[in-house]
Amino acid sequence: MIEVNQLTKKFGRKKVLDGVSFTANKGEITCLIGINGVGKTTTLKAIMGLTPINKGSILIDGETINKNTYEKVAFIPDAITMLPQMTIKQAMQFMQDFYKKWNQERATELLTFFKLDEKTRISELSKGNTAKINLLMGLAIDVDYILMDEPFSGIDIFSREQITEVFTSHLIEDRGVIITTHEINDIEHLIDKVILLDNGIVLKEFNTEQMRQEEGKSVVDVMREVYIG
């Protein structure tokens, strides 16, 4: 379980996160939604220790982030995280060098699934393929949690379909996933849990199926209620 408690983050005087708390469970897909602002990405970075926080705590299975938890959580940002001059093969080699839990079989499987050639250079990848490679780098580590920052933004429809397919496949297994997005449509049926963020606070946290069953509301319905009023 990833526990975020009272997370507060300031950029200068501006509070980007002001006491954000939520949990994300293993085996669930948790979606951080915010229609504007930088809170979502910052939250993921904070979980990964890529940005210092002003207050609060973040625990991954009860541990604060440390070198061992980097074998437990993978972060897939929306930018290239490998050197552009590397080939995909070299990038995978790099990962294999440093991660004990790197699973080369799965990496190869994903490569075939995404129909990518390992000789391609990172710099030559399209936006969609970059996202796939990022996903591959995360999924091929036997991590328990995967954090994805806007996996669908700005990429072509077929890449989206492929990525969506990954989400429903055995590749996710029983891992916990946190996705950030500002656009819910494509993945509404994929997610277990929604956390609505705005102005640095959690406006609402709910389980999607429960919401449908008990209140008959879609995620967008709830968003409309919460954000527009």
Partner: peptide
């Protein structure tokens, strides 16, 4: 369940349910 989730593009937890 997994196949169904993939076919229907739904969360495997939902398929399970």
């Amino acid at each position: 369940r997994r196949e169904l989730a993939a076919m229907l593009k739904i969360n495997p937890n939902t398929a399970q349910k």
